[in-house]
C-alpha cells in the first residue's frame, strides 16, 4: 500500500548524512595533504551505495504502487487515505513490510561494507607481500 515510504524516509536521511560526510572528508583531505592517510574506502562512498540502493528500490516500488492504483497524482496521493480502515491497514503494512525492507537493505549494505573493507585490506596485504 505504501511500504516504500519507510525506505524513502531512510533514503532522505542517508542522503543528508552522505552530503555532510563528503564535506567533512574534503576538509580532512585538505588538512592531511601530505598523503599519509591510511588507504580505505571513504564512508561517503559507502553511504552512496546505500542511498543508491534505497532510492532505486523506492522509485521502482513507487512505480509498482502507481501501476496498482495505490498511489495517485492528486491529494492525498495514497488511495488508502480515503478510508480509515484502509489507512490503519496501510500503517500496519508500513510497520511490518516497510520496516522489514529498510532493515534488510541496511543489513545487506553492512555486509557489503564489511566484505569491501576485507577485500581492500587483502589486496593491500598482497601488494605489501609482493614488494617485500
Amino acid at each position: 500500500m505504501a511500504c516504500f515510504i519507510v525506505s524513502a524516509a531512510e533514503a532522505v536521511v542517508v542522503t543528508a548524512v552522505k552530503k555532510a560526510e563528503e564535506k567533512k572528508e574534503i576538509l580532512t583531505a585538505q588538512e592531511n595533504s601530505d598523503n599519509t592517510a591510511v588507504k580505505r574506502i571513504p564512508l561517503s562512498r559507502k553511504l552512496t551505495w546505500l542511498s543508491n540502493m534505497l532510492w532505486g528500490g523506492v522509485v521502482l516500488l513507487a512505480f509498482e504502487h502507481i501501476w496498482h492504483g495505490e498511489v495517485v497524482p492528486y491529494f492525498p496521493f495514497l488511495t488508502a487515505m480515503y478510508d480509515p480502515s484502509d489507512t490503519a491497514e496501510m500503517l500496519q503494512e508500513m510497520a511490518t513490510v516497510g520496516v522489514g525492507m529498510a532493515v534488510l537493505i541496511t543489513f545487506v549494505w553492512v555486509v557489503m561494507c564489511v566484505a569491501a573493507d576485507a577485500l581492500v585490506k587483502r589486496s593491500d596485504r598482497t601488494a605489501d607481500d609482493t614488494i617485500g
Binding site: N52, M53, L54, W55, V58, L60, V97, M101, I105
Partner: peptide
C-alpha cells in the same frame, strides 16, 4: 553500470521482503 546494479538490487531486496510477507 554500478548505478543500475544498485537500482535493481535495491528493488529486488524490497520485493523479496514483500514476497516473504
Amino acid at each position: 553500470l554500478g548505478i543500475l546494479c544498485f537500482l535493481y538490487w535495491g528493488a529486488s531486496i524490497m520485493w523479496l521482503v514483500d514476497a516473504l510477507f
